[in-house]
């Protein structure tokens, strides 16, 4: 079997919470708690979940923007977790990130040319190469060469997101981590960007980790999808299996909660009661048991393990 492009093994990220007058660290927010998955070359893995489930933290851990508390990350079979800053910079040219807010992720004082240039400078391209590359990139993402001398405020949200994508593509990365890349955009613009991302994947053989809360968007773009709840993967499968035959009660509830733009469709809704518990003080046993309609006694006591129940289909639930 081919080596996956990226592999996460039991990664954990605990953020300490300071309490008391002396600021002693005596509790932790378990943002990511024992997550393992692999992304194969050329595929799109979607990561869905509600706010605070740890999906963005997972993306940042892969980028080495945050330090792991525990676990290992492998890139093309080589361990990249635990490297020092210099070594990380060298491997990091293989990954790039696209951020959620196109208004906050571009420096308002820099021209578009300089924004796209920056990764090229860091990774040692000469000046002539850089100038050609900027023009080329702008055209790839559907902008024009004359846009290079403008500032971010002169662009609309959709255009800024295109600039963000051009910056991410600049150094020919192998993996792009897109963290909610379309959630700040209007629907008609959102579809432009989704189509662009799909086209780029084909032309440059890119691998995506696509983080989003919108299940329909994730279904559209992904090959495989992982569902996260309170720092854990509760179900992961290929897209068809997950959306047609999702097994975990949380996956089912999540899918039934999405409003579908078809007024004739009347569905049975699974309405979950209550809110997402705080990750600083997660429930015992299965973290979902407080909202799960099927919870039994064992769910309150024992943490379920992620088990494979079909080809590439894993679920963590006692009842399955």
């Amino acid at each position: 079997m081919a080596t996956p492009l990226v592999e996460l093994k039991n990664i954990k990220k605990y953020f300490p919470v300071k309490k008391g007058v002396l600021g002693r660290k005596n509790s932790f927010v378990k943002a990511v708690d024992d997550v393992s998955f692999a992304i194969n070359k050329g595929e799109t893995l979607g990561l869905v979940g509600e706010s605070g489930c740890g999906k963005s933290t997972t993306g940042r851990l892969i980028m080495s923007l945050l330090e792991l508390t525990e676990g290992q990350i492998y890139f093309e079979g080589n361990q990249i977790s635990g490297l020092n800053d210099n070594q990380i910079r060298n491997t990091r040219k293989n990954f790039q990130m696209i951020f959620q807010d196109p208004y906050a992720s571009l420096n308002p004082r820099m021209k578009i040319r300089d924004i796209i240039n920056e990764p090229l400078i860091i990774h040692g391209f000469n000046k002539e190469e850089r100038m050609n590359r900027v023009t080329e990139l702008l055209e790839i993402v559907g902008l024009n060469a004359y846009h290079a001398d403008r500032y971010p405020h002169q662009f609309s949200g959709g255009q800024r997101q295109r600039i963000g994508i051009a910056r991410a593509l600049a150094i020919n990365p192998k993996l792009i981590i897109a963290d909610e890349p379309v959630s700040a955009l209007d629907v008609s613009i959102q579809s432009q960007i989704l189509n662009l991302l799909k086209d780029l994947q084909k032309s440059f053989n890119l691998t995506y980790l696509f983080i989003a809360h919108d299940l329909s968007v994730v279904e559209h773009i992904s090959d495989r999808v992982g569902v996260m709840y309170l720092g854990k993967i509760v179900e992961i499968a290929d897209k068809k299996t997950l959306y047609k035959n999702g097994q975990h009660p949380y996956t089912k509830a999540l899918l039934s909660a999405v409003p579908i733009p078809d007024p004739k469709l009347k569905r049975e809704r699974i309405i979950l009661s209550g809110d997402i518990p705080s990750p600083a003080n997660p429930p015992s046993g299965c973290t979902f048991h407080t909202r799960c309609p099927l919870a039994t006694d064992i769910c309150k006591e024992k943490v379920p393990k992620l088990r494979e129940i079909g080809e590439g289909h894993s679920v963590s639930c006692h009842l399955i």
Binding site: Q192, N195, E219, H220, P261
Partner: peptide
């Protein structure tokens, strides 16, 4: 433009340009 759950399309319709 809206992707619909359970409906697999290769490409979404989109409206060119901006508001």
């Amino acid at each position: 433009s809206v992707p619909k759950l359970g409906q697999d399309v290769e490409k979404l319709d989109s409206i060119p340009g901006n508001v």
